[in-house]
Design a protein around this nucleic acid. Structure first.
Ligand SMILES: [Zn+2]
Ligand SMILES: [Zn+2]
Ligand SMILES: [Zn+2]
Ligand SMILES: [Zn+2]
Lengths: 155, 155
DNA sequence: ATACCAATTGAGATATAGTATCAACAGGGT
DNA sequence: ACCCTGTTGATACTATATCTCAATTGGTAT
């Protein structure tokens, strides 16, 4: 009856899942992090709080949260582990520099209309979206202009 | 001098990279696949053509193509190897069902204006984007309505 | 054509990430 | 307090990606 649940915990329960200690701990770890956190980092944070929580449960929880569109795995660089971002209001947007891997997040996306159209057209029920742009950040764009080939200036 | 290069091979070369046998083979494997192909599947296809090409080169090439916005890794469901998609005109868009992992791709995104605005606002140079929506596909949305908890009908 | 050199490669050992199994446990409804 | 089912944790296992470095090769200059 006590209703001191975080909004995301409530969504978990409303979807018919138990609010277990492991799940709530993973969720807290994600919320405490600044976003773009890997599974290993989640695992590390979780085990700082309670080292008895197993790896498998962390991965299972990440899967579960993803299936509920509470988080979303995204790729930053290198063919490795995804980093997870929260989808605060169902969406997340960022720019990734493909040269230095800098990430710039931004809030407004103007996708509301597109979302509505798409639901009607594909007959789907949307719960979230991720929009990512890639290219060169201001600094890297400038450096690329100067350097025909090899001038990796260590900044 | 012979100019029978695919557009993507040309982009590789124009960016200052050598057109090696390994790279061209990986590129061909990606182009031959229908998209949403994992690193292991690329490796498999590549080795069917030439089994002397090493794993490391395949991964290296996937990273390189990603940094050039020629391909982009995306996650279908969490805790999994990414699947790579080509970015034909710099962009790719799809819907992912978070229940059955069905993917529906679509072409139009209406992001041109947003892209222009963003370049000016963040002072970046954009080379591509990925837009993904999540939710329930028509079938899964219908099933979810009927089943309060456990009715995994094997279709 | 030949020679040259830096970029790139392949092999395979190593490191890292994620999954399977299953007995024990605990959330939440009664 | 009791029960039932979803969930868990330990561990062994599999899959995936990276590192290292001598050998090779693409591209260019001669
Ligand atoms: Zn940059
Ligand atoms: Zn949005
Ligand atoms: Zn579905
Ligand atoms: Zn687009």
């Amino acid at each position: 009856m006590s209703d001191d649940l975080t909004p995301r915990a409530r969504r978990l329960r409303d979807a018919g899942h138990k609010l277990t200690h492991a799940r709530l701990t993973v969720l807290a770890a994600l919320e405490d992090s600044g976003g773009h956190i890997t599974s290993s980092e989640v695992l590390e944070r979780v085990n700082l709080v309670d080292h008895t929580i197993g790896r498998a449960s962390v991965f299972r929880t990440l899967d579960l949260l993803t299936s509920l569109s509470i988080i979303r795995p995204t790729y930053l660089h290198s063919s490795m582990t995804p980093t997870y971002v929260l989808l605060p209001d169902g969406h997340h947007h960022h720019f990734i520099c493909t040269r230095c891997n800098r990430v710039i997040e931004f809030d407004d996306c103007g996708l509301a209309q597109i979302e509505t159209d798409l639901e009607a057209r594909l007959h789907v029920k949307l719960t979230g979206h991720l929009l990512e742009f890639y290219g060169l950040c201001e600094r890297c764009a400038a450096e690329s202009t100067f350097t025909p080939s090899t001038t990796e200036s260590a900044s």
